[in-house]
């Protein structure tokens, strides 16, 4: 219950010690605010330099461009670069593992896949690729459906697999 003090001639709940504490906390808060803004600019909470990442070596037939940090229900992209030797018999077959696809919703794919094959633990996207030595890039436009850490695996039907980890902010 309020016990009002008297300071000079006024009855007032002034509390200088507490006020000084508040001022200190506020100044710390301003610094934290500035740091958070810088972190956001750098991409700690979403797209930005800290968030951009690639998986897979430069010369390999499969290379992945993804974002380390994503946000819940926000659109994001996963770009798959393929090089020589990725396709076979005029077809390029890229699969995404099922646990990853439970965390994201594939809104669209460019190039348009020829067909999508459902497997027990993976979805395979099949593209027409007349030139077996050509390189191409395929973009998956995704909507994040899950909060927290997302582990993903992307691979070519014949061999190379790339794993990556993303963190999804609420």
């Amino acid at each position: 219950m309020s016990s009002v003090k008297r300071i000079g001639d006024v009855e007032i709940n002034q509390d200088l010690d507490f006020q000084r504490l508040v001022w200190t906390v506020q100044r710390v808060g301003w610094v934290v605010t500035a740091l958070l803004i810088v972190a956001a600019l750098l991409g700690l909470f979403g797209p930005g330099p800290l968030s951009w990442a690639t998986a897979g070596e430069g010369g390999a037939p499969l290379r992945l461009e993804y974002n380390r940090f994503k946000r819940y229900l926000a659109p994001t992209t996963l770009r798959v670069h393929t090089g020589a030797g990725a396709g076979r018999e005029g077809q390029l077959r890229i699969w995404l593992d099922r646990t990853y696809l439970e965390g994201v919703q594939v809104e669209s794919v460019t190039l348009q896949p020829d067909s999508v094959e459902a497997g027990t633990d993976r979805m395979t996207y099949v593209f027409q690729m007349p030139d077996p030595n050509g390189s191409t890039a395929i973009t998956f436009n995704l909507l994040t459906q899950q909060i927290g850490t997302l582990r993903g695996r992307v691979g070519l039907a014949e061999g190379q697999t790339v794993t990556f980890t993303q963190f999804v902010y609420p």
Partner: peptide, 14 residues
């Protein structure tokens, strides 16, 4: 709780 009130609303200052 007066301390909670202080925390949330602050205190007046001469």
């Amino acid at each position: 709780s007066q301390s909670l009130e202080k925390l949330l609303d602050g205190v007046p200052l001469i």
